[in-house]
Design a protein around this nucleic acid. Sequence first.
DNA 1: CTGAAAGCGCTTACAG
DNA 2: CTGAAAGCGCTTACAG
Lengths: 333, 333
Amino acid sequence: MSGRAVTLTDVATKVGVSARTVSRVVNNEGGYTPETRDRILAAIDELGYRPNLMARGLIRSGTDTIGLLTCEMLDPFFPEVAEGVNQASTKLGRTMLLAATHNDREEQTRVLSSFQGLGVDGAIVFPARDTFDDLRAAARAGLPIVIVNHLVTAPNISAVSADIQRGAELAVEHLADQGRSRIALLIESEAHHYPPTPRREAGYLSALERSGLPVDSDIIVPVFNSVEGGRDGLRRLLESTRDIDAIFAFNDIIAIGALQEMLSAGISVPDDVAIVGFDDISMCQAVTPTLSSVKIDREVLGMTAVEVLQDLIETGDAEARSLPVELVVRDSS
Amino acid sequence: MSGRAVTLTDVATKVGVSARTVSRVVNNEGGYTPETRDRILAAIDELGYRPNLMARGLIRSGTDTIGLLTCEMLDPFFPEVAEGVNQASTKLGRTMLLAATHNDREEQTRVLSSFQGLGVDGAIVFPARDTFDDLRAAARAGLPIVIVNHLVTAPNISAVSADIQRGAELAVEHLADQGRSRIALLIESEAHHYPPTPRREAGYLSALERSGLPVDSDIIVPVFNSVEGGRDGLRRLLESTRDIDAIFAFNDIIAIGALQEMLSAGISVPDDVAIVGFDDISMCQAVTPTLSSVKIDREVLGMTAVEVLQDLIETGDAEARSLPVELVVRDSS
DNA sequence: CTGAAAGCGCTTACAG
DNA sequence: CTGAAAGCGCTTACAG
């Protein structure tokens, strides 16, 4: 298209100096007269020269980019994390590159290869299911990786995670403290294959125990991760028993489905049944009644991931970090 | 980290062939015995060789990547477009790289340089304000660009856009057809600096005219682009007049703010005042009453942008496309 | 303060 | 079917 791109040599030829001198100016190395510098900068401007990052990356250790690998772009959890990653990266002079894997192992492999091949200095990964071995292999091959929301560690790998179990405990204790004793759990259906879920379940169970409430597996309902999944889960719950007075949901999306279903079934929220979600997405404030939720500061999560990754890139080692969560009580509980 | 990455030459040395032969196998060029191929593939696997895309990109025309440049990651409009772009790219064997500009000219310039330097084959851009000249310059320098939602064209630039004006007309005609005659417009405040807004305003005006309704500038209210902006806009509207029976909002976020404010002001929706938003984000179905909206198929928008970009990359020319919109009527109107 | 040479990891002609 | 040479655009020692 439009012919060849402008190169360092083009600039050098135009000014009548060597490529080495232009390189010095481009990289602010010093060791040139102000006059030479000005002539070179003028030529760069005039010619529209942009350094070829591939050529540079081939030589230098890195390309000043970091890759962010997400499972699911459409999950409302995600954009705010990306925003935090982007901000923190920019502050470090790095460009964030983002790609999605749809929770698919092969797609993750493909994207990871692209990132490595493009010379990213490190990657922040929301891992697809059952791919920790792939990530360990990539790390061993030289790619520093920070895993989000799974406390995996290995050489050249670190992790950042919100304290999900504690969040679940806060939610369920809050419900128990109101005197609710039949607290149902709507849990994502692939629970037993995916780390985040057990942590929510663990928090639910430990909070029940601490509150002296019995566990009733009839009111622990696996659901699909969608609004419709929440609706459907509530219908199934009501078919088996009407004897519940609270619900803790895997996330806000599922909670909103359950909420809608309760309202259309004539159940009063929170008078008959209280409900608490998880994630504190912005929709919590838009629904009626507004939805209580466990808040994870997703931007901070993203920014922290970048900090840990930077550590890992620079020192080859970085301690995993866990971030606090917070319960936001609204009208639904 | 963990030493040097594995190169083509490492593989060649291990198998005892030349780099050229390994290159042939890696790129499926043919011209080798099955036996040679198998030995090379085995070595690649064992060594964990990954082609260095920077070296390859330095030679070949492209890197099989395309860049997606968004203004605002947090806008709910965006992830679905990105999803569409991602799907269509993957189908073409390309990796999508994504970065955000926050509607900031300098940040856009920085990201665009990174993308060019990394050798993306083309870019899909949600342009930051007043940056068409920058984009034209980048296109002239050899980067094929597809602009989203602005029908700009120039050499090496094409565009994809939803028919926003028609969407606005559909919404306002729908309200007028119900006999509503005092239809307010909540319009984003920076309206006159940004193309999308005039198109909505144009649709609003032309629909009023077609319906024989007068224009009253007192009920055209500029608001900030946020839920709070919608709330605030409605408060200001009610201060100046209570004589309205419908609202058309710039987007769903603003509409939801206005909706909340109406409900807390004791205004019945849609009996007293009907309201229609724009974009059809998923929250429309979660609020009470559910919100009517103009639907833009964002995934299709993203996929179409990729198709146009591919055309532009391959042929150096591609016609701009406009996508139809659809009115989704729900409980709020 | 400035430059000539080598090389990053690959592919592209070209030769056998 | 296989390989030796040149070169993509830059930077890294090294020399003056």
